[in-house]
């Protein structure tokens, strides 16, 4: 089923995507499927194993079921401090 997702990008992903956010109409069921699609679109260098997925401001696992209207962020390796 087609859904609309809102994706926000930070740091390396933002630079590689060339944008801070995008709306996407897609059939991706999970963050894992969504990232695979986005990685192909933007040639992201980071593998899923280096990222964490956030949906609607909560950390989720890669098999979490995405719903229409979800806000999704993939978190690159952090480096605060």
């Amino acid at each position: 089923m087609m859904k609309t997702l809102h994706i926000q990008y930070f740091a390396l992903l933002r630079e590689q995507a060339g944008m801070s956010e995008q709306q996407l109409h897609c059939e991706a069921l999970t963050p894992a499927q969504l990232y695979e699609q986005l990685r192909a679109e933007h040639a992201f260098s980071l593998s899923p194993g280096q990222l964490r997925a956030v949906v609607n401001e909560e950390f989720v696992n890669w098999e979490h079921i995405l719903n229409d209207g979800d806000r999704v962020v993939f978190i690159p390796p952090v480096a605060g401090g």
Binding site: F10, A11, L12, I75, P76, V78, A79, G80, G81
Partner: peptide, 8 residues
């Protein structure tokens, strides 16, 4: 903070 907070 260094490992958990989304800051780059």
């Amino acid at each position: 903070v260094k490992v958990r907070v989304p800051i780059w």
